[in-house]
Structures are given as structure tokens and as C-alpha cells.
């Protein structure tokens, strides 16, 4: 079985700062992977390289066997056009820390925007499917609300529905609960656990260690732009090999 996401020797520099140093990892279909680590360790950068929001300085990312951002001709890689890259991204869902809902559109319009404009779905079908996804995140009754009328937790659940509506082959979550008030974190994590159980491939950058223990098949610990270690949730959380991992976990659990 080939992995659905393959990250091979990816490095990324911002000026003098090396955010990622030769990172490689694979994610299998249906796998739920949590990436943890201190801030500035390159977790979000790695995630953003997967859907080419950041262009890796070197290395290759493949999703579903396709090289992201490039077309291979023999040994030469040609940068993709805007349209081709958009088509690749449409198959990779992303949920942001700051939700990034479209504030000028209602909840329903946010969710059907991609299916109608990008996938060219018929309006009625897109609406019907959007209602299913909004039902899954528990917001079928909020279709006509604007994002500014929703709580942070509700907004993030709409953002999840918006990403799901594109039928992505993998979903990326970039610290989905970090911007939420503490009492709203649970509802978002609940939706994500539900998705994890449904067999969706998920890569989640998070600080919620308890969530990682419950939902993740595998945990990747990153520090200083590198993957320090990776393994089943239970073995990383209770029996980390590296001192750096152990001290990080001790600090976040206090």
C-alpha cells in the first residue's frame, strides 16, 4: 500500500531562518496523524508545504502519488500553472487556526462556494450536500447566519464543513483550537474525533495532547525544523525515546 501523503527531504527557509530541515514522513490512507512540538518547531510550515501554501526550498511532496506544485518530465520538474495547482489543492482540505471563513458570505454560501465555483457542481446538489456536512458538524440550523454572528467554535465547525464539501483525500488542520475560548475547544475536538472515526485521512498540528492520545493513530514530535520521533500515540506519550520529547510533554502537561 502506498502512502497518500509522502513528504520527501523537504526543507524550507525564510531568509536566514531554516524552518524545516530535510523532513521526510509518510501518511497512510485513513491514518490520523498529530504533529506536536514547541512553537517555532516547523509544524505549521510542514503542513503548509503539503498543500503548497509554502513552496518548499527543496524536497518533494506527493499527495495521492502526484507531485504537488510541479509536473515531472523525465528528471525535470516544471512549476504548475495557477489553474493546475488549484486543481491539486481542491483535493487537499485545510482548516486554519483563525477559521478564515468568508465573512461576506452566509454559512451555507461558505460551504457551497468551493463545490459550485471549483467543482462546478449544480447548485441544488451542492446545497443538498452542504446541508449534510453542516449536519455532521451540528450546524444545520445556522445556514443563513453570517460568520460574525457565530461563536469561534461554530465558525471553526463551519470551516471544517467547508473543507469537507470538497471531498478531500486528506484534511490538514493547523492548530484548529488554538484561537478558541477554552469552553469552545471541546465541540470542535468532538467533530474532529467523529471525522477520525469515519476513516478520513487527517494531519493535525495541535497542542491538545489529550486529543492526540484519543484520536491519533500516530504522533510526530517536531523540534527545530526536524522530526525528532514518530510512533503510535501511546508509545510516544508514555515512552518517548528522546529526552527532548519527554521534556516537552512534561512541560505541556505540567
Amino acid at each position: 500500500m502506498t502512502p497518500i501523503v509522502q513528504v520527501s527531504n523537504v526543507s524550507k527557509s525564510f531568509g536566514a531562518l531554516e524552518a524545516l530541515k530535510n523532513v521526510s514522513c509518510d501518511v497512510m490512507e485513513g491514518e490520523v496523524v498529530c504533529i506536536i512540538g514547541p512553537s517555532g518547531s516547523g509544524k505549521s510550515t510542514l503542513l503548509r508545504c503539503i498543500n503548497h501554501l509554502e513552496r518548499p526550498s527543496s524536497g518533494i511532496v506527493r499527495v495521492g502519488g502526484e507531485i504537488i506544485g510541479y509536473r515531472a518530465e523525465g528528471r525535470r520538474l516544471h512549476g504548475l500553472s495557477d489553474r493546475q495547482l488549484a486543481a491539486q489543492r481542491s483535493r487537499i482540505g485545510m482548516v486554519f487556526q483563525q477559521f478564515n471563513l468568508f465573512p461576506h458570505m452566509t454559512v451555507l454560501e461558505n460551504v457551497v462556494e468551493g463545490p459550485i465555483r471549483v467543482r462546478k457542481e449544480a447548485r441544488e446538489i451542492a446545497h443538498e450536500r452542504a446541508m449534510q456536512f453542516l449536519g455532521r458538524v451540528g450546524l444545520a440550523h445556522k445556514t443563513d447566519a453570517y460568520p460574525s454572528q457565530l461563536s469561534g467554535g461554530q465558525q471553526q465547525r463551519v470551516a471544517i464543513a467547508r473543507a469537507l464539501a470538497m471531498n478531500p483525500s486528506v484534511m490538514l488542520f493547523d492548530e484548529p483550537t488554538s484561537a478558541l475560548d477554552p469552553e469552545l475547544v471541546g465541540e470542535v475536538l468532538l467533530v474532529m474525533k467523529e471525522l477520525a472515526r469515519s476513516g478520513l485521512t487527517m494531519i493535525i498540528v495541535t497542542h491538545e495532547i489529550a486529543f492526540a492520545r484519543d484520536a491519533a493513530d500516530r504522533i510526530i514530535f517536531m523540534d527545530a525544523g526536524q522530526i525528532v520521533e514518530s510512533g503510535p500515540a501511546s508509545s510516544i506519550l508514555s515512552g518517548a525515546q528522546h529526552e527532548r520529547t519527554r521534556s516537552f510533554l512534561a512541560a505541556v502537561r505540567h
Binding site: L53, R89, M94, F102, V118, R119, A163
Partner: peptide, 25 residues
């Protein structure tokens, strides 16, 4: 910037994101 990122992450092209997401705001 988050609006552009959200728009392209659901598969919009530059012009689509400009017309549907950025300009209206």
C-alpha cells in the same frame, strides 16, 4: 492574507479568489 489562503485551499485560482473573496470584502 488568511482570506486568500482559505480561498486557494478550497481550490480557487488567483482570479477566482480575487473576484469572489478578496474584492467583495
Amino acid at each position: 492574507q488568511g482570506q486568500t489562503e482559505a480561498a486557494v485551499s478550497i481550490g480557487m485560482t488567483y482570479w477566482q479568489s480575487l473576484r469572489r473573496v478578496i474584492m467583495p470584502q
